[in-house]
Design a protein around this nucleic acid. Structure first.
Length: 274
DNA sequence: AAGGTTACCTGCCCGC
DNA sequence: TGCGGGCAGGTAACCT
């Protein structure tokens, strides 16, 4: 489900509820998700210090030496317990706070929950190879140009590569490339500098607008209050193959790049070649 | 060594 | 109505 804006939305919705709140216990209803779940005992009776996000990971920093790391995979949800959250067979991890229960629900179980010592955060297997945050100043034209210059992969794969820049998943890659007027199958090193500058800007723009809209709710994305986002109403190309381009009315095309559905306007998006 | 493919899992939608 | 196939927001382990 979730790309950067969706995690940011979940973080924003949960932060006011969980910050400063006592965590009584964490219960796992099965041994594993994507990975084996840890022994959560050390987190019992700690207090949530801050909520933050790195790439598509949500971090709950505790007042002890540990951080709870949560990744929603494709279908994960974090829901403050209510009627709707009850009795779901995919409720895999229960965070019992003082007065509030937070439920991690994930039908496909591609997500993860782990407990990492603060001193090992940067070097842990999840974080050690992560690229730059797209909304930071470090993600700029100079950086992307330098990466593109030496890459003969497609520009779409490149911006979805977590070693290069984090948080840009399939939806926002498609949308950013449309706004920048770049065909997704352009080989990265053939991109003109002006287009690279545009792409950096459209990636930031799309992500920021999606965060403002509360994320994109494709099948069932919701924030901590079970509220859907609305950015899917603004998709220019994602999932719109066969429909008219919102700019030029051409038919939006679909192709598969590296196994992922890719949508683009053949008129508005130029394929650059040597 | 980069780039492509497959696997992980369940649910849902479509066509027959 | 039921069943099989294909597809889904992500990541990482394999291959070549």
């Amino acid at each position: 489900m979730p790309e950067l804006p969706e995690i940011e939305t979940v973080k924003n919705s949960l932060a006011p509820i969980l910050t400063g709140r006592k965590l009584l216990s964490i219960t796992a209803n099965r041994p594993n998700l994507r990975y084996l779940l840890p022994n959560f005992k050390v987190a019992s009776n700690s207090v949530v210090h801050t909520l933050s996000r790195r790439a598509k990971y949500l971090l709950l920093s505790l007042d002890i030496d540990y951080v709870i790391l949560i990744h929603l995979g494709m279908s994960g949800r974090l829901i403050i317990d209510n009627e709707e959250a009850k009795n779901n067979k995919h409720n895999h991890v229960i965070f019992q706070f003082e007065g509030v229960k937070l439920v991690y629900c994930d039908p496909r179980r591609f997500g993860m929950v782990d407990l990492i010592a603060k001193s090992e955060l940067d070097t842990c297997k999840y974080f050690s190879k992560l690229g730059i945050e797209p909304l930071s100043d470090d993600f700029n034209a100079e950086y992307l140009l330098q990466v593109c210059t030496k890459s003969s992969t497609t520009i779409k794969q490149l911006i979805m590569d977590n070693n290069v820049v984090v948080g840009v998943g399939n939806i926002y890659a498609n949308e950013s490339l449309f706004l920048a007027g770049i065909a997704p199958n352009t080989i990265a090193k053939f991109l003109p500098q002006a287009k690279i500058i545009m792409l950096v800007n459209t990636i930031k723009q799309v992500l920021q607008k999606a965060i403002q809209a509360g994320g994109s709710s494709m099948k069932d994305f919701v924030d901590g209050h079970n509220q859907a986002g609305s950015f899917q109403q603004h998709f220019a190309v994602y999932g719109r193959d066969g429909k008219n381009c919102i700019i030029c009315s051409s038919i939006i095309k679909k192709l598969i790049i590296s196994g992922r559905a890719t949508y683009f306007c053949p008129e508005c998006q130029e394929k650059f070649e040597p």
